[in-house]
Nucleic acid binder design. Sequence first.
DNA 1: TTAAAGTTGTTCCAATTGGAACAATAATTA
DNA 2: TAATTATTGTTCCAATTGGAACAACTTTAA
Lengths: 158, 158
Amino acid sequence: MGRVKVELDYSNIFESVEFPDAYKVSYLANAIVFPTYEDVRKDFGLVRAEYHLLLCLAHYSELTAQDVARITRRPRNSISRAVHRMLDLGFLKRVPDPSDARQAKLQITNEGKIMHKKVSEYLVAREAEIFSILSESERKHFRNLIRKLANFASTLKR
Amino acid sequence: MGRVKVELDYSNIFESVEFPDAYKVSYLANAIVFPTYEDVRKDFGLVRAEYHLLLCLAHYSELTAQDVARITRRPRNSISRAVHRMLDLGFLKRVPDPSDARQAKLQITNEGKIMHKKVSEYLVAREAEIFSILSESERKHFRNLIRKLANFASTLKR
DNA sequence: TTAAAGTTGTTCCAATTGGAACAATAATTA
DNA sequence: TAATTATTGTTCCAATTGGAACAACTTTAA
């Protein structure tokens, strides 16, 4: 009569935790968001702040480093480091702002756009995979609700 | 006629990004989840893995370090480090497992429970603040949808 | 029964990270 | 106008982080 290994149900805590909504958002971050950044690094050689730069500048034609820091809520020094690397890699270009000598305007290059396309295709596929668990209507609802939360979060002081 | 500083609308990207759902989940993680871990560290002196240990053992009476790694999806070495610190702090106790000498069962102490109560009260308040933007019915829907996503994520290979 | 493969917890190490302080410049106030 | 305050981008540094390798032990396969 051998010992029996009991397999724990690891998802109990989703329901019993004191802050179930925040916990699950956090869980998704740990289970999906971070591993995704990790994959982008492994597969495309870009760390988080670097890809954030690419993403932002693929969607806004001209931004300062500070703008990107605000959009993504990352620290300025991380962005600063990333800017230099992205300039070296030829994914960004930088032009001084004649109206404010402290800052410089950043733009994405064609090479940067190509890289952005590759990475974002990967991320689109990944998104599709994860959200495949929801029906179309559920997904629409979810998008609506998460939009409210994200917009609200964007108003919180940094 | 002075120059005018145009304030960028930083939330455009929420709609224009190629993976809007995943992006907003990721944004919430960066805007809320991480700063929260940071606050817990500053206010309670516990790093992420340490609080995860406390949380897990407040909800399961006995777990191995490996269990906690799986529940939280954190690397084992982070948990291992955290275990030692939590033992030193008196928040956990550890008893060898006679049926498997490789592992040890962890339990939360009374002191650990007190600490957990303090931290989780803080997190409950934080959750309430963030989700206050949703109506009761919206929040119920959101909880339902995020549960599906979290449960699905928990089935993904690690 | 022996050998091979897998698991647990740990240490080590290299890399990333973000806070703090700083110089340069701009905006605000006196 | 002069002095103070704020902002931008940067460098430096200390701390956290997770991957890789490892020893001890258990399970599976031969």
